[in-house]
């Protein structure tokens, strides 16, 4: 599994496995703390100071401040945990999904109404390389 990971070939997809979970532990535990109203208030008052309590990496901290969901996923964030961060801003998972895939909320919404993103051309990195 560690030598040749077939999941690595799936484009635009980060598998939240035990390694990612380790990498993102403090980031996700910070997000978990946003389930508590008092903590949300504290976070909103001084995001940077609040984040300093969690021994995450500088990059993770930066990405939280910039709400860069796509990068947060790549560096250990899990969507169910990140969702709690975005709820603080009043944003839905759907809107975060739109942003991660480089679409506006409206474009994404229309795509879903039309049956969602097709697996055709989205199964393997080689397919993305061709279309690029």
């Amino acid at each position: 599994m560690t030598e040749e990971n077939p999941f690595d070939d799936i484009p635009g997809t980060t598998l939240f496995d035990a390694h990612k979970s380790r990498e993102g532990y403090h980031l996700n535990m910070f997000c978990m703390s946003m389930g508590d109203a008092a903590s949300r208030e504290e976070f909103k008052q001084d995001e940077r100071a609040y984040l300093a309590r969690y021994p995450m990496t500088e990059e993770q901290r930066d990405c939280v401040l910039r709400r860069d969901a796509l990068r947060l996923i790549e560096i250990g964030g899990n969507i169910y945990f990140l969702a709690k961060l975005f709820y603080v801003d009043g944003r839905s998972v759907r809107s975060v999904c739109a942003a991660m895939s480089g679409m506006t909320d409206k474009e994404y919404e229309q795509m879903m109404l039309d049956g969602g993103r097709s697996p055709e051309g989205n199964r393997s990195k080689s397919e993305w390389a061709q279309s690029a």
């Binding site: 999904c97 991660m100 480089g102 049956g115 969602g116 993103r117 989205n122």
Partner: peptide, 17 residues
């Protein structure tokens, strides 16, 4: 059933599968 909530493939649906 099919869904992806992350990354650039978010929104994936595979009706046939």
């Amino acid at each position: 059933m099919s869904h992806q909530l992350q990354g650039k493939r978010a929104g994936l649906i595979n009706k046939e599968w």
